[in-house]
Design a protein around this nucleic acid. Structure first.
Length: 500
RNA sequence: GGUCUUGUGGCCGAGUGGCUAGGCAGAGCUCUGCAAAAGCUUCCACAGCGGUUCGAAUCCGCUCGAGACCUCCA
């Protein structure tokens, strides 16, 4: 049996996964900043880590998954940049910061549900851990790695580096170059050194979010919350820390510095970074005009889209590439994913109708077993979902052949049939978190449909194809697809239902 | 400018130094009243130039191109 290998950004190689306290695994993922809508790129990242979380569970680990909500810092009001929230307006016209936080936190959770992402075990907020953050700053001050100026506290990167702690270990930067790079920028700064970063920022009186601290009223620095909350819930050193590639520097670099500066330890054994999402060859961004919100993707309410796509199809498209690769999507890719997903889901439901009459182990049985094993070893190879999906497609071909009688069911042993069920449910449903299309559970509708199907069959038997085609077409228009030699079934109605 | 990543067939995308990735699309066939679905067969690759090697899409170098980060960002 293969063992799980994970690419570690810190060491830049694949490593055999060995949790600190098996079977327990600590997983920390940087969550969203909730002052605007999450976009589709965020969804890819959180889908990737959802799959990783699910696969760890699938492998029998007991995972504590912590994903933070960043709700402190430079909150602006809804109108975004260009609007000075400090200008005096009637109090009620301004959104309360926590109102914004609430709105976008709820929105984020809704999107997570639509994409069938499991909630983390703990979802801590930055504002809920101000005291702990202040405590960590005090430790850093005590360790001589931070200094206070005018009510703000900064991390002393140069000093940290002199203590043989390599700042830049994760992102491959060296501080001389960084300093040189900053020198060109404006130097109006109270920091001792341009690469120092804020642990605590003094707040001007009109700043809307501020807390009391030993250094006066202020708010915590941007990198501190993750250090504090990962340590609090997972320990000073835990197994996996994840986040988007764009957080590698400076966010994760600073996090490491803060943790080492405080506890003298690397916070995480493994750092994982998921890659970015492009649309039509470009990074999704407002300035390119190709930034699409998840909800727009689902409803199709966007000029660049021809129609809406189901969250499952979108997620399937994500899973067809490796989490660490850049992914470029477009309309055609979405359409392809829709069809591909349907093929796999159809194969999955066909398994239920198969019968196994094999008495000995046939070639087919052996093929099924080796493909099932391949799924595991593909996933164990740094969560290679693309390859695993390819393997599932190979199994789908076998299933379809069995269904159509092209492969005789005396070639299929009952153990293999069971294995097919286990694999399709295990990977497609449990690990990838893909939901099957909705099955009809309405008994009356079922009975009515059987009457209609019977009528159509009689028309067909009389060669009255006008009538039989009419029935089929009318049903199609109502979202029910009728295929000959088959039962009728519902056609993807659930999506639109979910949106309204 | 610096750090890092990357360049695969019509599109999207895996990939180990030597063996068909896969999906969707295209072509042909089977099935079919017609569709749909499904099955089988098939076409189209590894940016360019060198090098290492018995052998490289896979390793090294250069050229060209793309992207991310260096400022909040998944």
């Amino acid at each position: 049996m293969s063992k799980l290998q994970i690419y570690n950004s810190l060491t830049r190689k694949k490593e055999t996964f060995a949790p600190i306290n098996p079977p327990h695994v600590g997983l920390y993922v940087c969550g969203p900043t909730v002052y605007s809508n999450v976009h589709l790129g965020n969804v890819r990242t959180f889908s990737s880590f959802d799959m990783i979380y699910r696969y760890l569970i699938f492998c029998g680990y007991k995972v504590r998954y912590v994903r933070n909500i960043t709700d402190a810092g430079h909150l602006t009001n809804e109108q975004g940049e260009g609007v000075n929230r400090m200008e005096s307006q009637a109090k009620l016209e301004l959104l309360e910061p926590m109102e914004i936080v609430q709105k976008y936190t709820v929105g984020f959770h809704q999107i997570c549900q639509l994409f069938n992402l499991l909630p983390p075990n703990i979802e801590p907020t930055a504002t809920g851990h101000i005291i702990e953050q202040i405590e960590m700053i005090e430790e850093l001050l005590k360790n001589g790695l931070a200094y206070e100026i005018n009510g703000s506290v900064y991390f002393d990167v140069t000093k940290y580096n002199q203590n043989k702690h390599p700042y830049g270990i994760l992102s491959g930067r060296n501080i001389e170059e960084l300093i040189a790079g900053y020198r060109d920028l404006d130097g109006q700064n109270e920091k001792r050194n341009s690469i120092d970063f804020a642990l605590w920022k003094a707040a001007s009186p009109e700043h809307i979010m501020q807390w009391r601290s030993p250094w006066g009223m202020g708010f915590p620095g941007w990198h501190l919350e993750c250090s504090v909350m990962s340590t609090k819930y997972l320990g000073e050193t835990f197994d996996i820390h994840g986040g988007g590639m764009d957080l590698k520097f400076p966010h994760h670099e600073c996090e490491i510095a803060q943790n080492i500066g405080t506890y003298g330890k690397q916070p995480a054994n493994i750092w994982m970074h998921t890659n970015m999402l492009n649309f039509n060859g470009q990074k999704m961004s407002k300035s390119f005009g190709n930034s699409i919100l998840p909800i727009e993707m689902i409803t199709g309410n966007h000029p660049l889209l021809d129609k809406g796509y189901s969250p499952m199809a979108i997620k399937f498209l994500f899973l067809q590439s490796h989490y660490s690769s850049e992914l470029d999507i477009n309309i055609k890719g979405l359409q392809d994913a829709e069809k591909g997903l349907k093929r796999l889901m159809d194969a999955r439901s066909h398994i239920e109708k198969l019968t196994a009459k094999g008495t000995t182990i046939s070639d087919i049985d052996q093929q099924i077993e080796s493909l099932a094993n391949a799924c595991k070893s593909n996933m164990d190879d740094d969560f290679n979902t693309a390859k695993t999906i390819a393997t599932l497609f190979d199994l789908a071909t076998i299933i379809n052949s069995l269904k159509d009688g092209i492969i005789n069911n005396n070639q299929l042993h009952s153990d293999s049939l069971q294995l097919l069920k286990t694999v399709f449910n295990g990977y497609l449903i449990d690990v990838f978190g893909l939901k099957p299309m909705e099955e009809n559970t309405n008994k009356i509708l079922d009975d009515v449909m059987n009457v209609i199907i019977q009528l159509r069959k009689e028309a067909k038997d009389k060669k009255d194809f006008m009538t039989s085609d009419k029935i089929r077409n009318e049903l199609q228009a109502k979202g029910i697809q009728l295929k000959d030699e088959k039962k009728w079934r519902h056609h993807l109605v659930y999506l639109t239902q979910m949106m309204h």
